[in-house]
């Protein structure tokens, strides 16, 4: 479904030198697949996600979605593509503080033109599935961190995307909550056959993936199997 063909992207660094954020990366993601891109911070993971979404254009190579080159899309078409096919989850959940949980989750649908009532109706089941429907009317500021991440996930899934791009979705959570949220992400996406590209430096993220690719200095190294999570120490 998603194919990156030898894409490269470079930026000018603060001292004028060229930083190769992504260096000849090739990647394919099939429908329903969860691919984890695992690597240290600064290895170009976010850039790769932006390229996959069509937000940034590669210097070389091509990004294909269902066989269509994203670079050939006009601005409007690219926006429509994001609106209908993609969902985003970020490390900072980017919820609007003044809105309730359900309104936050419904925001994307509202942006597309649904009435508020209809949008809320459509995301309610999602919130239930993610276990936060009891907090639906609470303002975003009143939610715990874990709850906020679930609401952000609901928002990402609200438009029935075919591909979810997640950038360090649990970066600020502790390992237990992290595992919970990631497991939920994997579960829900598998249920709905949504492909997921997950960028993370958390081993728990790698654990839920079908496929893990290491990213280092902008290059993909060979696929590894799932990484076993570090067991928490037992207390007596």
């Amino acid at each position: 479904m998603l194919e990156l063909r030898a894409v490269s992207k470079a930026f000018a660094g603060p001292d004028g030198e060229t930083i190769r954020a992504v260096d000849r990366v090739s990647l394919t993601v099939a429908a329903g697949e969860l691919v984890a891109l695992y690597g240290p911070s600064g290895s170009g993971k976010s850039t790769l996600l932006f390229l996959a979404a069509g937000i940034a254009q590669p210097d070389a190579g091509a990004v294909l979605f269902d066989g269509h080159d994203l670079a050939s899309l006009s601005r409007r078409a690219a926006a429509r593509h994001r609106r209908t096919e993609l969902g985003f989850v970020f490390q900072s959940t980017r919820l609007v503080p003044g809105l309730s949980a359900i309104d936050n989750a419904a925001l994307k649908l509202m942006a597309e033109g649904a009435t508020r009532t209809e949008a809320r109706r459509r995301v309610a089941p999602l919130l239930e599935r993610l276990g936060v429907v009891a907090r639906a009317e609470h303002r975003a500021t009143q939610l715990s961190r874990g709850e906020r991440h679930r609401v952000a996930l609901a928002r990402a899934l609200s438009n029935d995307p075919r591909l979810v791009l997640a950038d360090e979705p649990t970066g600020s959570l502790d390992s237990q909550r992290s595992q919970e949220v990631l497991a939920l992400l994997a579960e829900v996406c598998r249920e709905r056959a949504i492909a997921v590209v997950l960028v993370t430096h958390d081993p728990a993220g790698a654990a839920v993936a079908d496929r893990v690719q290491r990213l280092r200095d902008g290059r993909l190294t060979e696929t590894t199997g799932a990484v076993a999570p570090v067991a928490a120490p037992q207390l007596r």
């Binding site: 979404a53 937000i55 601005r75 409007r76 926006a79 429509r80 593509h81 994001r82 609106r83 209908t84 993609l86 985003f88 980017r94 609007v96 925001l107 994307k108 942006a111 597309e112």
Partner: peptide, 16 residues
């Protein structure tokens, strides 16, 4: 600006 950037990321058109 952040709010708008978020919406644009989600696919909100320029006109909107």
């Amino acid at each position: 600006r952040r709010f708008i950037a978020d919406l644009r990321l989600e696919g909100l058109g320029d006109l909107t």
